[in-house]
Design a protein around this nucleic acid. Sequence first.
DNA 1: CTGTTGACGAGACCGTGAGTCTCGTCTGAC
DNA 2: GTCAGACGAGACTCACGGTCTCGTCAACAG
Lengths: 199, 199
Amino acid sequence: MPPTPPVPERRPHTGRRRNEAARQAILAAARRLLAAGGGEPVTVDSLAREAGIGKQTIYRWWPSKGAVLLEALTSTARDQVSTPDTGALESDLAAFLCDLFQAGTAPDNAAMLGTLLAEAARDPQVADLLRDFTRTRRGDLRTIVERARERGETAAGTDVDLLVDQAFGVYWFRFLSGHAPLTPEVARTLARTLALGAR
Amino acid sequence: MPPTPPVPERRPHTGRRRNEAARQAILAAARRLLAAGGGEPVTVDSLAREAGIGKQTIYRWWPSKGAVLLEALTSTARDQVSTPDTGALESDLAAFLCDLFQAGTAPDNAAMLGTLLAEAARDPQVADLLRDFTRTRRGDLRTIVERARERGETAAGTDVDLLVDQAFGVYWFRFLSGHAPLTPEVARTLARTLALGAR
DNA sequence: CTGTTGACGAGACCGTGAGTCTCGTCTGAC
DNA sequence: GTCAGACGAGACTCACGGTCTCGTCAACAG
């Protein structure tokens, strides 16, 4: 998700150069604000103030507020979830889901996600970026399931995409609605029933 | 979800009475606008204009814009999904999920839900109301699963809540992300794997 | 019939927040 | 040294949710 350069001109660049420190300050401020409160909205003004930069500098690097927040999320969420290879589907799933639930309910990340979803609901561009993000996560889980298929652990007609979506669906549904917990025990139970349903 | 009377005074009421027609006009306008475009936001002004009433009349009957939209949704979504009783878990699930997927992806309802979710993301009160709504839908599905348990179709340790959330999770996840379809065939496959996983 | 009460449509108004514009300053390539 | 252009600061516009006011209209009391 490279921040869009405002215009990809070929003209040789003169003048003052872009300040990478400012870019990092903005992302760091976004992470702090997203993680700070229980979902209170992050405004562009507060973001600029927290980063100690001018609003215009934000819009020089990103097309919208949501794009900043999303990049702040993805740059931290990357590598918080592993794709384990224990040799058996159920234990692979259990490990993956434990990681997912833990990373996804840690207060900082949860506040980030909540704010970000509110942003995505209003800004289609952010929604697209968020879709890209979830696509890679689904890909990780697919990898696990397909390894199991190669080992012959799943029935021939198993719908891998559906299995993956059952797992993420429980996560997102409970995360959004908050009506039931996302504990490691739930992760293990879910892993067991998914592995069972795939046979 | 009775619209909150502005103040429950005991003083005998004189003066002009509330206009039920205006209330219905507002709800009808909300349904039209929600269903109209591909998620373009419904503003209070557009709602008042469409209904041919004053903004203040909206706020006399509902606490916020989101509350109106949610009532418009629930008053139409009620009774669009049945709780079949075919005598077997898998076919009950299949029927329920087919209904859910069909009602939930009909263009009108889908546009409604999308707009409503954007509203819920910003307005905690709407989020609460939406939670209530999903709670009753989960209750419907729970009924189906518990009937199966009484027939001895599920294993003793089955986590009914988790099973329910797997079903709704797939629906919401795919609805929100739009990365995969919600066809009757998917509903049947999901019903099969869920019934299998519960044994 | 007449007066009082309160809902009504219309629309001015306010606060907030996203995004743009302007300005004076500073930095680096030439 | 000069000039393009990125910077911080902050004024500005616009859209939208929600409130307030006003003149009108309908239902009840007397």
